[in-house]
């Protein structure tokens, strides 16, 4: 078994299916190096979320499974580890749609992240202060039920909850979903700051390729369950064809195949 020492996460020719029948991934490859921000780009339904769930071994909980290939986090086969063990090993994910515990307060939500890692009380307290430093607004809302906070506050809560588990690889699924551009920027700025200050590695799935490419070092594009393109963020951002080809061509609705179908 050969693996590059700097590859924190390696995904090799992974395929996955739901319910034993519905194939969602047909061969995805990617390597994430220690300390980098890797963007996972693709249009709706390309397989980003399935891949991220596979990385955290969350597919079985949704009646899905890997049907081929392997995913290794620091050399450990993730399919052999429970999601709880992966969190304790430092692989922490913020789910698509945030999934805050709605009836728990913001602070209680954050503390569940400490539970997930079995932090001591002192560690949990220190981590809580760090999260409030990163997202000062959350400190104001600490006693509010998470379900009553705004979308941006919920996203910050979900990210803070993940950070409370002291990740070494932080996986985020569509952190920009449904949020105002200003809030999205604040969130990405915060992530970039932790990446720069602590070398935290990030794997971020995004439909919003513009913002993702602005902050990422490298990106992988997936389409129809396959990884089709890998490159540095600067390189990919410079190519106009990428957006229209793989990412749904949001700029020119008339040129996208779906739009044509609708118009016909």
């Amino acid at each position: 078994m050969t693996k590059l020492p700097e590859a924190l996460l390696s995904v090799r020719n992974v395929s996955a299916a739901y319910g034993g029948a519905v194939a969602a991934l047909h061969g995805v490859d990617l390597d994430l190096r220690r300390g980098e921000i890797l963007a996972l780009l693709g249009s709706n339904g390309a397989g980003k979320t399935t891949l991220l769930k596979a990385v955290s071994n969350l597919l079985p909980a949704e009646r899905g499974a890997l049907t081929g290939g392997e995913i290794r986090f620091e050399g450990r086969d993730v399919a052999e580890s429970s999601p709880a063990d992966l969190v304790r090993a430092g692989l922490v994910q913020v789910l698509e749609g945030r999934h805050c515990f709605r009836s728990l307060t913001v602070e209680e939500n954050l503390l569940t992240g400490a539970l997930g890692r079995s932090s001591s009380r002192a560690e949990a307290k220190a981590d809580l202060e760090k999260v409030y430093d990163l997202f000062p607004w959350l400190a104001q809302k600490r006693r509010t039920a998470a379900g009553l906070t705004s979308g941006g506050e919920q996203q910050m809560t979900a990210i803070g909850r993940g950070l409370m588990s002291r990740p070494r690889l932080f996986v985020l699924d569509e952190p920009s979903m449904g949020l105002a551009p200003l809030v999205v920027r604040e969130i990405f700025e915060a992530l970039k700051r932790i990446n720069a200050a602590e070398g935290l590695s990030l794997l971020v799935a995004e439909q919003n390729s513009a913002i993702a490419l602005k902050y990422a070092h490298r990106a992988v594009v997936v389409e129809n369950g396959r990884s089709v393109l890998t490159g540095s963020a600067a390189e990919l951002a410079a190519r106009d064809d990428i957006k229209s080809f793989y990412l749904g061509g949001a700029d020119l609705p008339a040129s996208s195949p779906q739009a044509k179908e609708v118009a016909a």
């Binding site: 999601p83 805050c100 709605r102 569940t112």
Partner: peptide, 23 residues
């Protein structure tokens, strides 16, 4: 208690509790 907090988290959103690392 901490385990009580874990109970409430699981009661709220099982999938999220799993992803957070609760056993």
């Amino acid at each position: 208690t901490r385990i009580g907090l874990a109970f409430r988290a699981v009661a709220d959103d099982q999938f999220a509790a799993l992803a957070v690392g609760l056993r």
